[in-house]
Computed example of a mutant assay.
Amino acid sequence: MKNPASYFEIPVVDLDRAMQFYSAVFGYRFEREQIHGNEMALLPIYEGQEGISGALAQGEIYVPSKNGSLIYLNSSDINATLNKVKSNGGDVLLPMTPVGELGFVAEFEDSEGNRIALFQNHE
């Protein structure tokens, strides 16, 4: 049996602004696509690595929100990532918080008004 999640999409209002934000914060490089009439910026997928990937998605059906589903993005240094979030126009919603033996989490608001979470393991 496979893990439940296979792909995600983060709704955006301004794809260029969102790409700039996520590139500045995480260093992501994007591949632009048009899928089902919607503009997409595909996040990287690293072959042979654990986890899934997704896209920034702009279109009529994509509405950014701080409510609803929450995606967790990996960070090797949550505090450094949160500093980049703040310096690129985002807001910290939940500072770095321990989650027992699993590691740490945090939450931020991105350039589009989405609530996004971060995860850092204990390594």
Rank of each mutant, 00 (worst) to 15 (best):
A5L: 12
A5F: 12
A5W: 13
S6A: 15
Y7G: 01
F8A: 02
E9P: 02
I10C: 00
P11C: 05
P11S: 09
V13N: 15
V13W: 01
V13H: 10
D14P: 08
D14G: 02
L15E: 06
D16F: 09
M19G: 00
M19P: 01
Q20T: 15
Q20I: 10
Q20P: 01
F21H: 05
F21Q: 02
Y22L: 07
S23K: 04
A24V: 02
Y28A: 11
R29N: 11
F30G: 00
R32W: 01
Q34S: 09
Q34L: 12
Q34K: 09
Q34N: 11
Q34F: 08
I35R: 09
G37Q: 07
N38P: 00
E39M: 10
A41E: 03
P44H: 02
I45H: 00
Y46N: 10
Y46H: 12
E47L: 09
E47K: 14
E47W: 03
G48W: 09
G48C: 07
G48H: 06
Q49W: 13
E50A: 12
G51I: 00
G51Y: 03
G51H: 07
I52N: 10
I52H: 12
I52G: 11
I52Y: 15
S53E: 00
A55W: 01
A57P: 11
A57M: 13
Q58I: 02
G59H: 06
E60R: 14
E60L: 05
E60Q: 13
Y62M: 07
V63M: 02
V63A: 02
P64H: 11
K66V: 12
K66C: 06
S69G: 12
L70Y: 12
Y72Q: 07
N74V: 12
S76A: 11
S76C: 07
S76V: 12
D77M: 04
I78C: 13
I78W: 13
N79K: 11
T81M: 06
T81K: 14
T81I: 01
L82S: 06
L82W: 01
L82A: 07
L82M: 08
N83Q: 13
K84T: 11
K84H: 15
G89Y: 04
G89A: 04
G89E: 03
G89T: 05
V92H: 14
L93W: 06
L94P: 04
L94E: 10
P95T: 10
P95L: 10
M96T: 14
T97W: 03
P98Q: 09
V99A: 00
L102F: 15
L102N: 13
L102D: 15
G103Y: 00
F104S: 06
V105M: 10
V105S: 00
A106E: 03
A106K: 06
A106L: 05
E107L: 08
E107N: 03
D110I: 02
D110K: 06
S111Q: 06
E112N: 06
E112S: 14
G113D: 04
G113W: 06
N114Q: 10
N114D: 11
I116D: 04
A117P: 01
Q120K: 12
E123L: 15
